[in-house]
């Protein structure tokens, strides 16, 4: 037991670090759901695109990976606009099934394009900045900085939502689209900007994830992130950006801390069980508190 208590703080800290990025990686999903009532089932594909943007710009042009955050965000904005005009605009009043399938299909298109363009192989890169030391245990800076930047972006989003006209409009539409329309909000424009911004933040989080993990980038890597984002969004209350960030931290810690725990318990495949645990969590929450642990 002495064993686990001594390493637990480390796992908690690395859980919070990765959780901060998970949180950012979920905010786009939850924001789009809150405003448009659309679940972007292809969510992970945009994370994958963000990862590739970082990978290619670093590998081909030796661009500092942190700088690639900007092009990754811009690519996301553009993809978000495309997604809105192609797959969402005409379906806003259609049955829920339509947007579930159209967003899903759009994600599949991106994945297949990525496969055709870049192949199905796993790719990776090496980029290092040295380490911080926490109680003698090294924390690589390429894990610390992305987490800090993710937190910064979440704060920026918070300011945008609560301190600007656009933010007020977005929140008004979230609360009551018809009421907002009556009050002169151009609802369709808010939808459009929300999708663009939501996807932009998602690809940006992909860039940060690429810096954090650096290996194993492939066209289908998004699936795992889609699922994780679902868990986190549901945990934080689907539609609540701040809930998503806190949910991200929780899931990060659960994932990181449960692996050593399962190893200690002698599980044959601790990683598999830890993922299983997160997905069980989602069902339990959906059953007991569909509005999320942090929801109203």
């Amino acid at each position: 037991m002495a064993d686990i208590t001594s390493i637990l703080p480390y796992y908690i800290i690395s859980g919070l670090l990765v959780g901060s990025i998970y949180g950012l990686a979920t905010i786009g999903l939850t924001l789009i759901f809150g405003v448009l009532r659309v679940v972007n089932v292809g969510h992970g594909a945009y994370i994958m695109i963000g990862m590739y943007v970082t990978f290619w710009l670093f590998t081909l042009y030796s661009l500092n990976p942190f700088i690639t955050l900007i092009p990754a965000f811009l690519v996301g904005l553009a993809l978000g606009m495309l997604l809105f005009y192609v797959a969402l605009k005409r379906l806003l009043r259609a049955p829920e099934l339509s947007t579930l399938i159209s967003t899903f299909g759009f994600g599949v298109i991106l994945e297949e394009l990525a496969k055709v363009l870049w192949g199905a192989d796993y790719r990776g890169f090496v980029y290092s900045l040295g380490s911080l030391y926490f109680q003698g245990i090294p924390l690589p800076l390429v894990r610390v900085w992305p987490a800090v930047i993710a937190l910064g972006l979440v704060i920026a989003l918070y300011v945008l939502l609560y301190r600007t006209r656009l933010g007020v409009a977005v929140r008004a539409v979230t609360q009551d689209p018809e009421g907002a329309m009556v009050c002169g909000v151009d609802v369709e424009r808010v939808y459009f900007l929300t999708v663009a911004l939501g996807i932009g933040l998602t690809t940006a989080s992909g860039a940060l994830l690429a810096i954090y993990f650096q290996q194993g980038i492939n066209p289908y890597i998004g699936h795992l992130y889609t699922l994780r984002a679902f868990v986190i969004a549901v945990l934080g209350g689907l539609g609540s950006p701040i809930g998503a960030f806190i949910g991200g931290l929780i899931v990060g810690v659960i994932e990181q801390a449960s692996v050593p725990l399962f190893t200690m318990l002698g599980a044959p495949n601790p990683f598999g069980l830890s993922v299983f645990l997160t997905f069980t969590l989602i069902l339990v929450i959906l059953l007991l508190r569909p509005q999320g642990l942090l929801g109203r």
């Binding site: 089932v41 829920e96 598999g272 069902l283």
Partner: peptide, 22 residues
């Protein structure tokens, strides 16, 4: 709708990782 979709994806992945994990 949306919640059902999310739940079913989770069941699928959960099962897969259960098979691997145990």
């Amino acid at each position: 709708g949306a919640y059902f979709a999310i739940a079913t994806i989770s069941v699928n992945e959960g099962l897969r990782y259960l098979v691997e994990g145990l």
